[in-house]
Amino acid sequence: MSATFIAPNPPAGPAGTRLRSRPWARFAVRRLRRLLISLWVLVTVSFAMIHLIPGDPVRGALGPTAPAELVEAQRHALGLDDPIVVQYLHYLKGLATGDLGTSLVSRLPVADVVAQRLPATLVLAVLAFLVAVAVAVPLGVVTGVLTRRGHGRRTELAFTTTSIIVATIPDFLLGVALVYVFGIELGWLPVAGNDTAPAYVLPVFSLAIGPAVILARIIRVEMVGVLEADFVRTARAKRLPARTIYAGHALPNAVTAALTVGGLLLSALVAGTVLVENVFAWPGLGSTIVRSILTKDYPVVQAIVLVYGVGVLITNLAVDVALALLDPRSKIRED
């Protein structure tokens, strides 16, 4: 039997083009406004940092025995003599022209220090994120399918318990443990620096495992929920193979929800590089900022805080854009 049911085609109206216009513009404007406000707050806060330090930061940095002329000169060099509004405008102007000041310790331009250290941190964070996603997605989907409603209560309990415990281990402790096992006991992998490819393994995994497990947990919960959804029943009514139902229909919907949390994880991962870099003597921003805090090299600290903050903002923006691309409804959703 062939379906011969064809109703007369109503004439196509001019509606087509109008229907295709999307509220992308409004989304972009709204998101851009939020980004600019956050950026302004971030810049202002990083500017304010040095002024929030109780007492005289220069005196504090140089120590009580430093001669008064030196302190004066340093204050002048930092521009701390000017009225605060002038300092603020000066700071903004510097940022706009890429001038982040001069290191109090090394006398190098801070912009150079950042430019030299940033790539190592960036590579570490990006690799860790990729590993986390590569682990979390299959793990979350498979456990989600195994523990869907009415199935696998034991698997669920085991997975949830393990993941809570693993997710609690902070990245730097995990790093220490990995150094001990793979670096010292087994001697398989280098534990410091970033000169060779094997040197990347331990830092990347220390950073990635926690977020991977949390993400997998979220994807699992979402999968279990999505597998109950009506449209999954529709997909089953279409008699699609299980693989297509899980990967093609359920996963995209589970991921959109997981992305929001994934964004928070990603920005936490950016910050997590600070600790992990210090475990592995990674020549990035993280080891630099800690050293600079200890030596009271404020311009460097200020700049690196700013860079991390911008990294977080960019991450959040990327997540929102990805959400908008993946979930056609989110653009028009007011937030």
């Binding site: 920005s267 404020y298 903050g309 959040n316």
Partner: peptide, 24 residues
Amino acid sequence: AGVNIAVAFPGLLLALFFAVVFGV
């Protein structure tokens, strides 16, 4: 709104910032 902006930043980053302000 201020709280919303602050929440977006990871705790460790905020802690580092305050560690600078309050001293080691």
